[in-house]
Amino acid sequence: MTSNATRWALLGATTVTALGAGRAVARRRRRHQPDRQGGWYVVRRGVTVDRPMDAVIGFWTDRERLDRALAEWATLEQLDDNRWRCVASDPAGGGTEWRAEITVDGPGRLSWRVDEGPVPQRGHVDLVSAPQDRGTEIRAELRYRAGGLLRRVLGPVGGDEPDLGLRDALRRIKSLVETGQMIDTRHDPSGRDATQEKATDRVRERLTTGGRA
């Protein structure tokens, strides 16, 4: 182990391994990043709801059910026949608001835009009948502008990216249409003190947000 040749060989092998690992990580990161088109990030997510299309549309037009379903996190205000304003507050608190204008573009298609707020976004949703009597596919496309040069270089990181919000929303919609409720285990009893509960809430947040739609 003392000869120079051995040292160089070891150093060489280490460098090659490190470069290889770095490249693999970078490639993996890139694969997880959304497409970019004309300055917008574009993400597409879908979820299958086990109900015919009429029932899915019906859920959105049944004002009473919708209000009850949204009660905790958003309000809807009808502007005219085809336009709505949705104000959602950050479920984690902190007073952040998300204001969107929603337009019904036709049967089975609606779009929304958010101009105020830190991340401008546009999106649209198409409803498509799923094969094999599997209900309705809700297909969503979201375009958003990432703020800041650093963020644009690094790609969107962290839990605040709209993609995570979109996946979460689709899962929420599916559950509301199929069961009329969203399961929440945050208030289930445990033997934790306040500090432990706070740490567990962070774990819950990571296990709840993101993943597949």
Binding site: K174, S175, E178, I183, T185, L207, G211
Partner: peptide, 8 residues
């Protein structure tokens, strides 16, 4: 599909 609220 809907009974695990922490599916990630």
């Amino acid at each position: 599909d809907n009974s695990n609220p922490q599916p990630v």
